[in-house]
C-alpha cells in the first residue's frame, strides 16, 4: 500500500493507505477529524470542502494518495488559540447556519472566495459559493455572513 505524508491542521501524519481511500475518509476515519462531513457522491454539495495546499477542494473527490505531501486545513484547524476565525464568527453573528451540516464546507468556500476577492459583491459571493449547497438557510444569511466576514478579515489585515 502506498505510504503518504500529509499535514492536517498543523499535524503531520504518515499513513499507509489503500489507493482508493478518499481524502475525506482519511480525515474522518483514520485521523478522527470528523468535523468535515460527506454530503454527496458527485462533488455537487461541497459539504466536504477543505483547504488543500491553500485552495478549496472537495475532499470526497480527492484520493488520499493525491494529497501526498500536501497540507490540509479543515474546519477544525481554522481557529487559533481556541478562538474562532472571523468567518466562523460572522456565520454565528448573521445566523448563517441552521442544521450546520453544510457549514464546514461553506465556511471553507467563503474563506477561499476572499483569497482572490477580498471585497466581493453580492453577486460574486453567490457565484463563489455555487459549489456548496445548503438546504436550510436559503443562503440569504450566508451571503450576509460572508460580507461581514470579509469586512472583519479586511479590518484585521489593515490593523496588523
Amino acid at each position: 500500500m502506498p505510504r503518504i505524508t500529509v499535514t492536517v491542521d498543523g499535524i503531520t501524519y504518515e499513513e499507509e493507505v489503500e489507493p482508493r481511500l478518499l481524502l475525506v475518509h482519511l480525515l474522518r476515519e483514520r485521523l478522527g477529524r470528523t468535523g468535515t462531513p460527506v454530503g454527496c457522491d458527485t462533488s455537487n454539495c461541497g459539504a466536504c470542502t477543505v483547504m488543500l495546499d491553500g485552495k478549496s477542494a472537495k475532499s470526497c473527490s480527492v484520493l488520499a494518495v493525491q494529497a501526498d505531501g500536501c497540507e490540509v486545513v479543515t474546519i477544525e484547524g481554522l481557529g487559533a488559540n481556541g478562538s474562532m476565525h472571523p468567518m466562523q464568527r460572522a456565520f454565528h453573528e448573521e445566523h448563517a447556519l441552521q442544521c450546520g451540516y453544510c457549514t464546514p464546507g461553506m465556511v471553507m468556500a467563503a474563506i477561499d472566495l476572499l483569497r482572490e476577492t477580498p471585497e466581493p459583491s453580492e453577486e460574486a459571493i453567490r457565484e463563489g459559493l455555487e459549489g456548496n449547497l445548503c438546504r436550510c438557510t436559503g443562503y440569504c444569511n450566508i451571503v450576509r455572513a460572508v460580507r461581514r466576514g470579509a469586512q472583519e478579515m479586511g479590518r484585521a489585515v489593515r490593523t496588523s
Binding site: S43, G46, K55, S56, A57, K58, V62, L113, G131
Partner: peptide, 9 residues
C-alpha cells in the same frame, strides 16, 4: 466550468 473548488483540482 463547475465551481471554484472543482476548478482548483
Amino acid at each position: 466550468v463547475a465551481d471554484p473548488a472543482v476548478r482548483h483540482r
